[in-house]
Design a protein around this nucleic acid. Sequence first.
RNA 1: UCCUGAGUAGCUCAAUGGCAGAGCAUUCGGCUGUUAACCGAAGGGUUGUAGGUUCGAGUCCUACCUCAGGAGCCA
Length: 473
Amino acid sequence: MLPDVMASRLNAVMSSEVTIPVVEAVSANEAPVSTIATIGQHEGQRVTLRGWLYNLRSSGKLLFPTFRDGSGTIQGIVPKAAVPEIVFETLKGLTLESSVVVTGKVRADSRAPSGYELDVEDVTVTQRVDDANPFPIQLKEAGVEFLMEHRHLWVRTPRQSAILRVRATIMRAAAEYFDTNGYTRTDPPILTPNACEGTSELFEMDYFDDEKAYLTQSGQLYIEATALALGKVYSFGPTFRAEKSKTRRHLTEFWMIEPEVAYMDLEGLMEMAEGFLRHIVTKVLETHRGADLKLIGKDEAKLEAIIAEGAFPKLTYDEAHAMLKDAYAAGKIEKPHEYGDDFGSPDETYISSQYDKPVMVHRYPAAVKAFYMQPDPKDPAKALCVDVLAPEGYGEIIGGSQRVDSYDLLKKRIEAHGLPLAAFQWYLDLRKYGSVPHSGFGMGIERCVAWLCGLEHVRETIPFARTLNRIYP
RNA sequence: UCCUGAGUAGCUCAAUGGCAGAGCAUUCGGCUGUUAACCGAAGGGUUGUAGGUUCGAGUCCUACCUCAGGAGCCA
């Protein structure tokens, strides 16, 4: 680089001009562009990093800027005596989260958390954050409300970025399991003419003229149709619930992956659900062990335990009820579980806490479950359904069932639940033309991410959470 | 919708009914191996809102607002 160019850059820094455009691309004699995650491949070589200033420590004539580039963080070292004055002056006092392009030599260093440091040789500021308006998210602790209000900036922090990477892996692994096992992805509509199950509160909107439309709360009914067309199908997309739930497990907008399989019974469904979850956990460990999982603070042994030898535990509703009865008698839960009722949140937490693998609870009383669930032929008061409860109190991550395949029974059920028959005519048609036993489940992605990452709240598992009290940013 | 709790500096939090404080951040200065670096100095406040009790209210009372956690409901 020419001396007069350097001089003008130095002048710009000295006169506190805030923006130094970096339109000048990394020139031919510069080092190859690397990412921090893969920087070990360039040990001893010069590389260029394009990212942001994450932190800056200083010891007089020695600067320690930490850079991040989305793949990780690395500390640079800038001794005043060893670099051009422009480089030192540019970095000295540079504001956090200013965007920078840095060139330096990669050096292994046992003192560095990642094992590598960068001996900075050159730096260009793409945009300098204004001194008077520093980056709002500090390295120190912050409150939930403040962080959520600044979610667009919070996602830059290493832990949040790591969570989003694990989320991406989970979504990829989930789809991959079905893609490689003969399933066809058939996504149902987001806008629906009526409530799928007639229970949940739905987001309502005008749909031209006098019609109303609702945001889907599940694609299940639609993929039952595509399952009878294509055999094995799944859907993967956002779903919406207008319930005023205020807990660490609820979002008003969340992502659900739902398989549906013709000729599959409940036993087959449970087997499939286990294979599906094992695949996801395996991929998460494969991709993030020792890195993102460590950064997030998840105990990896707990993930190892899930995929360890031995089937997932299975309990009937009756067995689970008996377990809760004992637990209440022993003073381990506060409220007794009434036989016939659905399990409450504390009940599920207790049941799942007994195992280090997800537990499958099946054959609930039909009365507390959805209208489309097939009765157990051995006990028609029970439904052929299964809830998969995640360990460590993360609650129900999967809910599924074998579906009613008889036209007459389904029609009766719809009427008994007070649902408008006309709206379900197409759904009834599926039982009129070549009906078969079929089963499927839905898994909430965010609960799965919270569980596998060991998070307190699902709001951190999605880039921009939609909750009862928040629709900004 | 119900129950519980919290709102004080940009952020995180202190403050027996008696002068509005600290750490971080910001600005200025110092430091050649720092790891949320550290040391010194400066600036920074309508204590969520409205009323009330009191000589005196951040603190006590009432209402409201906002947020959080939980219940219900669910993935």
